[in-house]
Amino acid sequence: MMTSEEIGRFYKALKNTDLITVETLIKDYIVKEVSPIAILNEGLIGAMGIIGQEFKAGQVWVPEVLLAARNMHRGIELLKPQLLKDKVPSRGKFLIGTVKGDIHDIGKNLVTMMMAGAGYEVIDLGIDVPREKFIESISKDHPHIIGLSALLTTTMLEMKEVIRSIRQTFSNPPKIIVGGAPVTQKFAVEIKADGYGEDAVRAVELANQLLSSGEIT
C-alpha cells in the first residue's frame, strides 16, 4: 500500500501546470518496480479522487480538474505498456455521449475525465450522438454503464427517446445514468433512467454503486 505521503506526491503532480512532474513521478515508480496496478489505482486514481472531492466541496474549480485530467492522461499513457503486459482489467466499461442536438460538452467531458480518473474504460461517442449510434455501440462494445448528458431542455426530450429505444432493443440493457444542467432527479425517474448524477463526482459514485450492486456481470 502507498503511504499518504506517496499519494500526496501524485496529488501534487496532478495539480502541477507542467507535465514533467507527472512524467518523472511515473517513470520513478516504474523503475522502482512498483506494480502498475498500484501506481494506477492508489497513485493516480487515489489522487484524482482527492481532487474530485475538492471540486465537490468548492475548493477547486473546473480549470484545476481539467488540468488534473490532462496530467493523469499523460501518466496513464506512460503506464499503458506495463498495464497491457500485466493484463490489468478495467473497472468496467462506460459509454458516454451527449444526445443529439447538444454541442455544449464541458459537463460531459468532466464526467468522462472523472470516470477515466476512477479507472473506468471510457468510450466517448462525442457530441450530437444519434440514437442509432448508441444502439450500435452497445451491441459492439458491451458497456456496463451508459451516461447520457443534455445541456439544453430540447435535448432532454431526445434523451427520453434514446432510453426508450435502448430498453426496447436489449433484453438486458446496461445501466443508464443521466445528467446535465437542465436534468433533474424527477426527470430522470420519469424517463426511466437508472440514476441521476447532479455533477461529475456524483456520476462516478453512482457508477460505482450500480456496479457493486452485483446486477452487472
Binding site: 484545476e64 481539467l66 488540468l67
Partner: peptide, 11 residues
C-alpha cells in the same frame, strides 16, 4: 473552446 481556454487560465 471552453476547455482549452479554462485550462490556459492555469497554464
Amino acid at each position: 473552446g471552453v476547455q482549452d481556454f479554462l485550462m490556459w487560465t492555469l497554464t
